[in-house]
């Protein structure tokens, strides 16, 4: 496939064919990750800067491992150690980074639109590792990859996303990706945690978790940020978990072998029942594993693909 993208800002820039192509590559890379020697020379001599202006463990580690397994040199920069804390503007920070001639900058930033902003300022590839509430395309691609590997298609599959949709970049990117792949997306949350007007979104909205779970093939639980309660969007965590914590009772309403996912980090007992997180249909750790392979595919395509 002729790769036409330089930057990965969100999944809606990709066609269905391109997404399936990423999945195909990820499958190959997943095989490499099972070998005793997990390294290939594909990106030898390429340098990748991991610029995480917001805390992250799994995404950053995942990108770091993905880059290293492809033999790229990866460099990490966190907000606390960057000049952003000295008041340097994002533009100046990324221009400085670019002057060191990396081939790719992976960026995580708390501002929605930050990745697009950075891509408009510099020449090298920019991979969005999460911007504000806006997008988290690599998470969506790995979520899609896990389900696609399992089902071989997402057409007509019912996927339910439960929790804080309003403030979730994962939900926004997941909805777009699943829709491109033909799945039917349901959302379930209290109205205070839903975006104000989502009538234009290709989703079905529920406020009652039991109704939402009927007949679904997969359930994605989102992390509840504890600060939502302070902002007056919820009465308290106990009430939230009583209404929106996914338990075995809910699984019984769904399709047999309904899959459980969570982008992490989990609040056990708040948005997901602890035993469900560890049950045989839980894909939580498969997601982490797939994350490395999908990010290898993405780094490969976005760094080498357009050459």
């Amino acid at each position: 496939m002729q790769w036409r993208h330089k930057h990965l800002l969100d999944v809606d820039q990709l066609s269905k064919e391109e997404i399936i192509h990423i999945f195909g590559l990820a499958k190959n890379f997943q095989e490499i990750n099972q070998r005793p020697v997990k390294k290939v020379p594909t990106l030898k001599g390429k340098s990748i800067i991991l610029f995480f202006a917001e805390p992250s463990t799994r995404t950053k580690t995942s990108f770091d491992i993905a880059g290293k397994r492809l033999s790229a040199d990866t460099f990490s920069l966190a907000k606390t150690s960057s000049s952003l804390t000295k008041g340097e503007s994002l533009k100046d920070t990324v221009l400085t980074l670019e002057a060191m001639r990396p081939d790719c900058i992976v960026i995580r930033h708390w501002q929605s639109g930050a990745a697009q902003f950075v891509s408009s300022q510099i020449d090298c590839s920019v991979i969005n590792a999460g911007d504000g509430w806006h997008a988290h395309p690599t998470q969506a691609l790995l979520d899609g990859f896990v389900l696609y590997s399992l089902w071989q298609t997402l057409e007509q599959k019912k996927i339910l996303i439960v929790g804080d949709i309003a403030h979730s970049r994962v939900a926004r990117s997941d909805i777009k990706l699943f829709s491109i792949l033909g799945a039917k997306v349901r959302l379930c949350a209290p109205r205070t945690l839903l975006p104000f007007d989502i009538s234009a979104w290709p989703v079905e909205v529920f406020h009652d978790l039991k109704q939402a779970c009927v007949g679904v093939d997969a359930i994605i639980c989102l992390r509840l940020q504890l600060e939502r309660q302070e902002k007056g969007l919820l009465p308290d965590l106990r009430e939230y978990s009583q209404r929106y914590c996914v338990t075995f009772e809910h699984l019984n309403l769904a399709q047999k072998n309904v899959k459980i996912m969570h982008p992490g980090p989990m609040n056990r007992g708040i948005e997901i029942d602890s035993s469900i997180a560890d049950c045989k249909d839980s894909l939580v750790l498969d997601q982490v594993q797939a994350g490395v392979a999908v990010r290898m595919a993405i780094l490969y395509l976005f760094i080498l693909g357009t050459n």
């Binding site: 639109g113 504000g132 309003a166 104000f196 234009a200």
Partner: peptide
């Protein structure tokens, strides 16, 4: 403005 666009952009 709060509406479709703010929801879409995550603002």
């Amino acid at each position: 403005n709060e509406g479709k666009l703010s929801s879409f952009l995550g603002l």
